[in-house]
Computed example of a mutant assay.
Amino acid sequence: MSNGSTRRDMLLAAGAALALAGSGSVAAGAQQGTSMYGLIGRMIAVPGKRDELASILLEGTGAMPGCLSYIVAADPTNPDALWITEAWDSKDSHAASLKLPSVQAAIARGRPLIAGFDSRSETTPLGGHGLVKAG
Rank of each mutant, 00 (worst) to 15 (best):
residue 63 A to I: 13
residue 84 I to S: 06
residue 48 G to F: 02
residue 62 G to W: 01
residue 57 L to E: 10
residue 107 I to V: 08
residue 132 V to P: 13
residue 22 G to H: 10
residue 57 L to R: 01
residue 13 A to Q: 04
residue 38 G to Y: 02
residue 68 L to Y: 08
residue 28 A to C: 07
residue 87 A to L: 02
residue 107 I to Y: 10
residue 97 S to D: 04
residue 60 G to W: 03
residue 55 S to D: 14
residue 85 T to A: 12
residue 60 G to H: 06
residue 3 N to C: 05
residue 76 P to Q: 05
residue 51 D to N: 02
residue 112 P to C: 03
residue 66 G to P: 11
residue 108 A to W: 01
residue 90 S to D: 13
residue 12 L to P: 08
residue 73 A to R: 14
residue 8 R to W: 12
residue 59 E to F: 04
residue 50 R to W: 10
residue 3 N to T: 09
residue 33 G to I: 02
residue 32 Q to L: 04
residue 29 G to S: 11
residue 32 Q to G: 11
residue 56 I to A: 08
residue 34 T to P: 00
residue 21 A to D: 14
residue 10 M to Q: 14
residue 33 G to H: 06
residue 102 S to I: 04
residue 103 V to N: 00
residue 28 A to E: 14
residue 70 Y to H: 15
residue 45 A to T: 07
residue 106 A to T: 02
residue 27 A to R: 15
residue 60 G to M: 07
residue 2 S to L: 03
residue 131 L to T: 07
residue 75 D to G: 10
residue 126 L to S: 15
residue 104 Q to F: 04
residue 75 D to M: 09
residue 103 V to T: 07
residue 130 G to D: 11
residue 53 L to F: 02
residue 70 Y to P: 08
residue 52 E to K: 00
residue 67 C to H: 15
residue 5 S to D: 15
residue 79 P to S: 07
residue 26 V to M: 12
residue 26 V to R: 13
residue 126 L to W: 13
residue 88 W to H: 09
residue 14 A to I: 02
residue 40 I to H: 15
residue 123 T to A: 15
residue 100 L to H: 05
residue 48 G to K: 00
residue 3 N to W: 01
residue 59 E to P: 04
residue 67 C to G: 12
residue 90 S to G: 12
residue 106 A to I: 00
residue 73 A to D: 08
residue 105 A to P: 03
residue 14 A to E: 12
residue 27 A to W: 01
residue 50 R to V: 06
residue 32 Q to Y: 00
residue 107 I to A: 04
residue 89 D to R: 12
residue 33 G to M: 02
residue 52 E to M: 02
residue 20 L to I: 11
residue 112 P to H: 09
residue 113 L to R: 06
residue 127 G to S: 08
residue 88 W to L: 00
residue 128 G to K: 08
residue 40 I to C: 14
residue 135 G to K: 14
residue 19 A to Q: 10
residue 91 K to G: 03
residue 53 L to G: 05
residue 58 L to Y: 12
residue 61 T to A: 03
residue 117 F to D: 00
residue 122 E to D: 13
residue 48 G to E: 10
residue 4 G to T: 09
residue 110 G to M: 01
residue 60 G to N: 11
residue 131 L to E: 12
residue 17 A to D: 13
residue 55 S to R: 13
residue 122 E to V: 03
residue 28 A to M: 10
residue 90 S to P: 09
residue 91 K to V: 02
residue 33 G to S: 03
residue 96 A to Y: 01
residue 53 L to C: 06
residue 85 T to E: 13
residue 94 H to S: 11
residue 123 T to G: 14
residue 34 T to K: 12
residue 51 D to A: 08
residue 106 A to V: 01
residue 36 M to L: 13
residue 65 P to V: 01
residue 10 M to I: 01
residue 129 H to F: 11
residue 18 L to N: 11
residue 108 A to C: 05
